[in-house]
Design a protein around this nucleic acid. Structure first.
Lengths: 195, 195
DNA sequence: CCTAGAAGTAAACGGTTGCTGACTTATTAT
DNA sequence: ATAATAAGTCAGCAACCGTTTACTTCTAGG
């Protein structure tokens, strides 16, 4: 019991449920995560999930939307197009204390719920996201080659985050921001060099 | 009915089950895939999964082992260390007809079953695999920096395969081997240059 | 041809899942 | 203080999960 007895607060409870759900969905996937586990970990009853989010899918959709926001503003803070892009990215990826939300957000980007409508939301977000990346690197948003390279960079980043957090493979999983700096810089410069 | 009525053949049925299971596990994940779906798609009864593989986890473990073999020999065929590495890799990744087994194999590498023993198998395989990659690129297997870079390359490849096959994001998902050649070459040269 | 055993099926089991409706408890406004 | 309402709990539902047991059907060896 972190909070020995918490005052009733619907908004806070809703937020707690989302925080827990994001972690579990991101780490274990949608199907492997049960609503009871989420509720238990949040310290409330299962029925509140249905009340606040209609259904498990509704909760996942809410998580995905908040993940969009986090990844988007994380990306804006990081890829302003100047030379320090790779360094800041490495810092974000490497330091576990820095940005837990962006990490789980990135993982959620490839976790499917089985609902085609939700998948389309994700696809649309990824498309916009990769076009922004291409533009900020000096390409046209309509340039297939630039967008392709941006999507490959995004996929590579997601893959690295996933491998670090899911498999627990060393030295990748335990590498800090300093160890990641050089290879991440090389990766960014190679896939999406500024023109 | 591709085969209007097939002769009874235990070995063939076992193989059919594994083929179907690999696809489904790779694409949808372990928890989201049911044994009934697998059996139905293979055209046999559910009970045969327990008979031939003891359990769903046993089936997954068998799939993972066959994925190890495929990825290993796919990697051996591709990364002999010479200059054509990136080109062959791009060809394997891009052409859907070329190597379906290596594609599903790569996807299985980050699909967890929840069983810690299985996860350890995967971790061990990934470690050996990345050390081989580092060595074939001219690093020592004990070099943390070389192995880290190899693991990042592996993670990037897995991420790209995943993004291509799971999200259906264009132009990445529909890009052919020719479109992938240049960026993949840049990616490989950047993350794991031969020394 | 016939039979022993392998290959495959059908049906049901206990357990778990997501979800719901009736209920209790705390908080707020008067 | 107390009624009204929001916040949260409880117990159970129907459906589905993985697995098993008893059964049927095919096939190979004599």
């Amino acid at each position: 019991m972190t909070t020995p007895k918490r005052r009733r607060d619907a908004a806070q409870t809703r937020q707690d449920l989302m925080d827990v759900a994001r972690q579990r969905f991101a780490h274990d996937g949608y199907a492997a995560t049960t609503v009871r586990e989420i509720a238990d970990q949040a310290g409330v009853n299962v029925a509140l999930i249905s009340r606040y989010f209609t259904s498990k899918e509704g909760l996942f959709e809410a998580c995905l939307n908040s993940a969009f926001t986090d990844v988007r503003q994380g990306a804006e803070a990081v890829e302003t197009g100047d030379a320090g892009f790779a360094a800041r990215l490495a810092h974000r990826l490497g330091d576990p204390a820095v940005d837990d939300r962006m990490r789980t957000g990135l993982l959620l980007l490839i976790r499917t719920s089985g609902d085609e409508r939700v998948d389309e939301m994700r696809r649309s977000f990824l498309r916009v996201m990769s076009e922004k990346m291409a533009v900020s690197a000096g390409r046209a948003a309509t340039s297939d080659e630039g967008v392709l390279r941006a999507q490959m960079l995004l996929a590579a980043i997601v893959g690295i985050v996933m491998m670090r957090n899911i498999t627990g493979l060393d030295p990748l999983s335990s590498a800090g921001a300093d160890a990641l700096l050089e290879p991440v810089t090389d990766l960014v410069d190679a896939l999406l060099p500024r023109v």
